[in-house]
Amino acid sequence: MLALTLLVVGSAGFVYPFLWMIATALRTPEGVAHAGAALWPLQWQWSNFAEGLGSFPFLTYLRNSLLSTLVPVVAVVFSSSLVGFAFARIRARGAGVLFAVVLSTLLLPQEVTIVPQFILFRNLDMIDTLWPIIVPTFFGSAFFIFLYRQFYLRLPEALTDAALIDGAGWFRIWFSIYLPLSRPIIIATAVLQFMSYWNNFFQAAIYLTTDRWKTLPLALAGFQSVNGTDTPLLMATALVVTAPCVLLFFVAQRHIIGGISFTGSK
């Protein structure tokens, strides 16, 4: 009973701010001042959403966010899967050392690598485009490479041996055998990558300078600086921006947990 009580209280503490944001998005400015911590709006101001999203080129920013999110999702899924398969199944001299080097990149904070990356993309004339955000994902992610490697190590090695006997090459083995069996970890990778890049503010703020390529996190930051005192409009805009990640997580949370905790037992 105590555990259930603690679970309910803890869940309420996490859920309450999101519910308050929804309630505030439907209030008038006067209603926010009088409502306090209440979660039920007295006046339902649905026009806050249209007014908030109409204050900036929402469709342009939405297109840019989709491009800078969906393309990296596909790129990371396939590149990390391919590299993880190579580390798990191809025996080569120095593979362990190379894998350790790949994992060591997780220790480098993004702030350390952003300067050389910025210089590189500036020399390639890619500043103020989505390419600096998209291109690095085609080389995989060290965290997801680790997950894929551990996932493939738990699959029967007889799959590889049988395919090699039948004359299949390594790429064919990965694409035709291992990739179709990777559905749990693919879903987990896709969801986690989507959530990371949909909320990607740091890279967008570094590389994007004009409205043509700005994404929704940048739009929300700019909206806050201009309309920070209009809490209902700010909450309505923030709710629209954050809703995809929240909905996606609740829909796919079972797959995320299943993909990461997969043990290979039947």
Rank of each mutant, 00 (worst) to 15 (best):
P132D: 07
F139V: 02
A163W: 00
T210R: 14
T209Q: 14
F87R: 14
L181P: 11
L179R: 05
P57M: 06
V83D: 09
R149I: 04
L218F: 10
R212L: 09
L155M: 10
M126N: 01
I165W: 00
G94L: 01
F144D: 05
L124I: 12
L53T: 10
V226S: 05
V71I: 15
P132T: 02
S261L: 13
R172A: 12
M195P: 05
T28F: 03
A38K: 01
I177L: 12
W46E: 00
L192N: 14
V8W: 10
H255F: 11
L220P: 02
S176I: 03
Q117E: 12
F78D: 03
F223Y: 08
G52W: 00
I90W: 05
A86H: 03
R27L: 04
A33W: 00
P132G: 07
S141E: 13
V101F: 11
N48E: 11
L233F: 02
V15M: 14
L107N: 01
Q110G: 15
F143V: 00
L108V: 15
I187E: 09
A95K: 08
I22C: 04
T160I: 01
P217K: 13
Y178F: 15
A88F: 06
Y148G: 05
P136D: 10
Q110F: 13
S80C: 14
D125S: 11
Y152S: 06
F18D: 02
F18H: 05
C245S: 13
Y61A: 15
S196N: 15
A158P: 00
Q43I: 06
P29W: 02
A238Y: 12
I257G: 03
W213H: 13
H255R: 11
L103E: 13
R63F: 09
R122D: 13
L218H: 07
A100N: 12
F223K: 05
R183H: 13
F138S: 06
Q253C: 05
N64K: 12
N48L: 07
I127G: 03
I206Y: 10
L82T: 11
M1R: 05
R91W: 13
S47P: 00
N200R: 07
F151Y: 15
G52M: 01
L98M: 09
H255N: 08
N199F: 07
Y148P: 02
A100R: 03
E30N: 03
L19C: 14
A75S: 04
G169D: 02
T210Q: 11
V9A: 08
S55I: 03
W170I: 06
I186N: 12
P244S: 03
A88G: 04
A190W: 03
I119L: 08
Q203R: 00
W20N: 05
Y148D: 04
M195A: 06
A100M: 12
V112K: 09
Q203C: 01
G259T: 11
V8K: 10
T231E: 08
L98F: 13
W20V: 00
A12C: 14
P57W: 05
R91D: 12
R93I: 01
L155Q: 13
G31L: 07
A142R: 04
W174P: 10
I165E: 00
T5H: 01
V101Y: 10
G84L: 14
L2V: 14
S141F: 02
L4T: 12
A88V: 09
P156N: 07
I22V: 15
P132A: 06
L153K: 14
F56S: 04
F87M: 13
